[in-house]
Amino acid sequence: GACTVIVDGRRINSCLTLAVMQQHAEVTTIEGLGTPDNLHPLQAAFIKHDGYQCGYCTPGQICSSVAVLKEIADGIPSHVSSDLLEQPTRHADEIRERMSGNICRCGAYANILAAIEDYAEGQTS
């Protein structure tokens, strides 16, 4: 949850890898997505939809969300994809399944989903 980062475009749990294993990789953390003065649109959507309460899981939720939407756009299926050979669609069940590893102790899941869907509506792919 809190330790999700994006490594070479794929989301991983930073707590389950050694930094030396990613020596030549492109690593994106929440700080690489946006700053308080220049928010990533997904960060703004989390604020708009109250997608956080305590804030502990929020960086990982947002990093994971960015990668989840790219996975869908890239045609990578999930356990709930209806056809493994077809382009997955960007719908609530697909997003929920892909985000299921990101735990929120406060239970803001509905708001997190709303933020992701709001942001995704503005995406072209």
Results as ranks from 00 to 15, higher is better:
Ala19Glu: 14
Cys15Ser: 08
Pro41Ile: 02
Asn111Arg: 15
Ala110Pro: 01
Glu97Asp: 15
Tyr52Arg: 08
Ile95Arg: 03
Pro88Met: 00
Ala120Ser: 12
His79Leu: 14
Ile62Pro: 01
Leu39Ser: 03
Gly55Phe: 08
Thr17Asn: 11
Glu26Arg: 15
Gly107His: 09
His24Gln: 12
Ala73Trp: 05
Ile62Ser: 07
Ile30Gly: 07
Glu71Asn: 13
Gly51Ile: 04
Gly51Thr: 01
Ala19Asn: 09
Ser65Asn: 06
Ala114Cys: 06
Glu117Lys: 06
Cys3Pro: 00
His91Cys: 10
Thr89Ile: 12
Leu16Asp: 03
Gln53Ala: 15
Lys70Gln: 15
Gly75Met: 02
Val7Lys: 12
Gly122Phe: 04
Asn111Trp: 04
Ile95Met: 04
Leu113Asn: 05
Ile103Gly: 04
Thr89Cys: 09
Leu18Trp: 02
Asn102Gly: 05
Gln87Trp: 08
His24Pro: 00
Ile72Asp: 02
Ser125Asp: 14
Ile116Tyr: 02
Phe46Asn: 05
Gln22Gly: 07
Val80Leu: 11
Ile12Thr: 09
Gly107Ile: 07
Ala120Ile: 03
Glu86Gln: 14
Asp83Arg: 11
Gln87His: 10
Ala67Lys: 05
Asp37Lys: 10
Leu16Tyr: 01
Asn38Leu: 11
Ala110Ile: 11
Arg98Gln: 08
Gly55Glu: 07
Gln123Tyr: 07
Val5Trp: 04
Ile62Cys: 05
Asp93Pro: 00
Leu16Lys: 11
Ser14Glu: 12
Ser82Pro: 03
Leu16Pro: 01
Gln23Leu: 13
Glu31Gly: 06
Ile6Asn: 06
Cys106Gln: 10
